[in-house]
Write a protein that binds this DNA or RNA. Structure first.
Lengths: 264, 264
DNA sequence: AAATTGAGTTCCAAATAATAGAACAATTGT
DNA sequence: ACAATTGTTCTATTATTTGGAACTCAATTT
């Protein structure tokens, strides 16, 4: 009779932790250090409560307070993340294939995986520069405006796509950014041809082509992409990479079957 | 009359969050995916409790369960971390100076910062030579067996060093790893000369030289280091870099004063 | 100089979520 | 077929979190 056991959109109730994660999310996704009052403003909880919650997060190193008393994400997060990343099997298996694709195309190659309604970038191979670990790696981007995201959606059963799309809060990043309706339409196209484009849908001047990667039971869904600046990459030249990128995706899936299949 | 408000060594009580963080710590620092029972074994809590705690962590994406039901660190951690890293001012300011030091020495350069009794590596510039090393951006390493760690301790007031050392659980990684007593002795030396060595104290075959970096009020304490394999780097050649590495540290501190001092 | 506003912190009875422990499934080994 | 091990669910009890007010401190305004 009291509050719902599950919040509006199917997310499970995680009690105290859930409330704390909202705060961590707010602070870590802000443009810069945040004042207590500004954090308070985006919650609907009383001051005393938020104050104690933030104190706990700070005590645990998940948040920090700078000398001006502003809150910012804590460095302890880095330690957790580096271990999550360092041992990620999908990434380890895909690595050589990504490198090869980078060599072939000369453009930036990304590996991403679907989590909720976001794509989390697991790895990135740039032209000359050595890999700057978190330069883009780790970032969560919306599914609906990334090549990898749309490629990933295209291999999910239609019902699951619809359910996911219903959860998304669409935001118009550029003139080409999808809406719920246009996205569902394009997914159908992608399903047929086997690869997806990003036609400057997330950032003006940035295009990409992507192919999906998935495990048998869909416990892992993601993709590879080749990204580059629009001035250098016409849609025609992007299209020429459709075959190699699909082959790369295929090789990664094959490597996963032998690498993960038989008891590791 | 009940349990203490503060745990043994001065750490604040963070209630429910603290208990959850212990679990997250255990799983993310394990060698591989963990079974429920193994996680349970390292806690002193009842089965039902741990089970629910893990469920909450999984629901929030901080942990994940693979197809065998094993727990591993969740990818959501990557998103948090990439934002923490991407905007870290200390790292951004130090970057060009680290690069210059790497160019000059040709060996791997690290930037680290003190958090509790650990050094968290914020950045790393590698040389050409592919030397496998137990160090990655974000990783937390013990203060007492890293060059950066000892350099950092050397600029803290003696009482604070003693307090910190008292908290450390010393683990003998190599034959040269410090004990509490020997560490305190070396800190005195480092305080005098202004730079620290790591004489294969963490990993056999790996040496380094480091210089401390600190802010006026000690709100930030860390260091830079040049690291390399023992077979190529004798203690004599390492010593030759004492001056340049201290200059690099000096330049970074100068840049911090102008960069952070006046309202950013 | 006194009063006012705004930001941050502390406190405690009441509300709520976490806990302990047992009971229940499901899986594996003998 | 039986025992042992592992993982999951349930509920009264207990402990933590909550909400709201009161308080401090500094910066502005009157």
């Amino acid at each position: 009779m009291t509050a719902a056991k599950e919040s509006a959109h199917g997310k499970r109730d995680t009690g105290t932790l859930g409330k704390l994660m909202v705060l961590l999310d707010v602070v870590s996704h802000a443009d810069g250090p945040m004042r207590f009052t500004d954090i308070l403003a985006v919650t609907d909880q009383p001051r005393g409560t938020v104050h104690r919650q933030l104190s706990h997060l700070v005590d645990e190193g998940l948040l920090e307070i700078d000398e001006d008393g502003l809150y910012l994400p804590g460095l302890r997060l880095l330690d957790f993340a580096s271990r999550s990343w360092g041992r990620n099997e999908f990434r380890l298996i895909a690595e050589p294939h990504l490198k090869a694709l980078q060599d072939m195309t000369g453009e930036t190659v990304h590996l991403g995986v679907l989590r909720g309604t976001s794509i989390i970038y697991l790895d990135k191979f740039e032209g000359q520069q050595p890999v700057r670990m978190y330069s883009q790696i780790g970032n969560a981007s919306p599914v609906y405006c990334t090549g990898v995201g749309k490629a990933a959606l295209s291999i999910l059963p239609q019902e699951r796509v619809r359910a996911l799309v219903a959860e998304i809060a669409f935001h118009r990043f550029t003139a080409n950014t999808h809406t719920a309706k246009s996205l569902l339409g394009e997914i159908e196209e992608i399903r047929k041809v086997g690869h997806a484009f990003d036609r400057e849908e997330h950032e003006v001047g940035i295009r990409c082509i992507a192919a999906p990667i998935w495990s048998e039971n869909l416990s892992l869904v993601g993709g590879v992409s080749v990204t580059g600046p629009a001035y250098r990459l016409g849609m025609e030249s992007l299209s020429e990479w459709a075959a190699p990128i699909r082959e790369t995706a295929g090789r990664i899936m094959e490597a996963m079957r032998v690498g993960l299949g038989p008891r590791r």
